[in-house]
Amino acid sequence: MKQLTMFTMAIVLFSGVSLLTAEETKSGLQSGEHVGPFYVTKLCGADEDGVTVGKNLCYRCKNGGRPQVMVFTRSSDENVVKLVRQLDKAIPENDSKQLRAFVNVLGEDKTAGKSTAKKLATSSEAKNVPFVLPNEFENGPADYGINPKADVTIIMVDGGKVIANHAAGSAKDLDVQAVVDDLSKILN
């Protein structure tokens, strides 16, 4: 009986920790922080953005002080695909505000990252969003503080400063609508 009680308590505690972790995932630069440069290699997408596939550059720098959404993902989950579709749609709708977005695919090796990027580009059918592999491909730029346990981190920037941040330990927990709603914060 004592073992059963301890086992039940362990399950309850473990479940509580899992729920807490899913709700409180913190990853990436936070509101008010300055967004520094970092280099990536363009893998695919955004054929008309003036950057050729294979080029190594700083997209953050290319976008300058414009409002931009930087997605860092380890997943090609349907929620990430939905987010990319929404961002791809928002870019031409906000042409006068010069909205930009780019998806940084993270992973343990470059080959897997390239495969994930191509899968996301194909699944999302994105025309305006480039998919890139950061030079620091495992966890993104060191000074950005991307949580290695976060499947998805979204940093929303205007004027070189973070305005909003969204992160999910599991891509299945990503609140796509909350991210889309926060676009208004960077499109003022």
Results as ranks from 00 to 15, higher is better:
residue 1 M to D: 06
residue 2 K to H: 13
residue 5 T to Q: 12
residue 5 T to N: 12
residue 7 F to A: 15
residue 10 A to P: 06
residue 11 I to P: 04
residue 11 I to A: 08
residue 16 G to P: 04
residue 21 T to C: 00
residue 21 T to D: 10
residue 22 A to C: 00
residue 22 A to K: 07
residue 22 A to M: 04
residue 24 E to H: 13
residue 24 E to L: 13
residue 25 T to N: 02
residue 26 K to H: 10
residue 28 G to E: 08
residue 29 L to A: 11
residue 30 Q to D: 11
residue 30 Q to W: 07
residue 31 S to D: 14
residue 32 G to P: 12
residue 34 H to F: 13
residue 38 F to V: 06
residue 43 L to R: 08
residue 44 C to Q: 10
residue 45 G to E: 08
residue 46 A to L: 02
residue 48 E to S: 00
residue 56 N to V: 14
residue 58 C to L: 04
residue 58 C to T: 15
residue 58 C to N: 15
residue 59 Y to R: 12
residue 59 Y to P: 12
residue 60 R to D: 15
residue 61 C to S: 12
residue 64 G to N: 09
residue 64 G to V: 04
residue 65 G to Q: 11
residue 65 G to C: 00
residue 67 P to Y: 06
residue 69 V to P: 03
residue 71 V to A: 07
residue 71 V to W: 05
residue 76 S to P: 03
residue 76 S to G: 05
residue 78 E to Y: 03
residue 80 V to K: 06
residue 82 K to C: 00
residue 86 Q to T: 00
residue 87 L to N: 02
residue 91 I to R: 10
residue 92 P to R: 00
residue 93 E to A: 00
residue 96 S to K: 09
residue 97 K to W: 01
residue 100 R to L: 04
residue 101 A to N: 14
residue 105 V to R: 10
residue 106 L to N: 09
residue 107 G to L: 03
residue 110 K to R: 14
residue 110 K to P: 00
residue 111 T to P: 01
residue 112 A to R: 14
residue 114 K to W: 08
residue 114 K to Q: 14
residue 115 S to K: 12
residue 116 T to R: 08
residue 117 A to S: 15
residue 118 K to P: 03
residue 119 K to V: 13
residue 119 K to M: 10
residue 121 A to P: 10
residue 122 T to Q: 11
residue 123 S to T: 07
residue 123 S to Q: 14
residue 123 S to K: 10
residue 124 S to H: 04
residue 125 E to F: 04
residue 129 V to C: 13
residue 129 V to K: 08
residue 129 V to S: 12
residue 129 V to I: 13
residue 130 P to C: 10
residue 132 V to S: 03
residue 132 V to N: 15
residue 132 V to T: 15
residue 133 L to T: 11
residue 134 P to Q: 05
residue 134 P to T: 08
residue 138 E to Y: 05
residue 140 G to R: 00
residue 143 D to I: 01
residue 144 Y to E: 11
residue 145 G to S: 11
residue 145 G to H: 13
residue 149 K to H: 10
residue 150 A to H: 09
residue 152 V to L: 02
residue 152 V to Y: 07
residue 153 T to D: 11
residue 154 I to Y: 09
residue 156 M to C: 12
residue 156 M to H: 14
residue 158 D to C: 15
residue 158 D to Y: 15
residue 159 G to P: 12
residue 162 V to G: 10
residue 162 V to P: 13
residue 163 I to K: 15
residue 166 H to C: 04
residue 168 A to E: 02
residue 168 A to F: 05
residue 170 S to M: 00
residue 175 D to S: 09
residue 177 Q to D: 07
residue 177 Q to E: 03
residue 179 V to G: 06
residue 180 V to N: 05
residue 180 V to E: 05
residue 180 V to C: 03
residue 183 L to E: 00
residue 183 L to A: 03
residue 183 L to M: 02
residue 183 L to K: 09
residue 185 K to S: 08
residue 186 I to N: 09
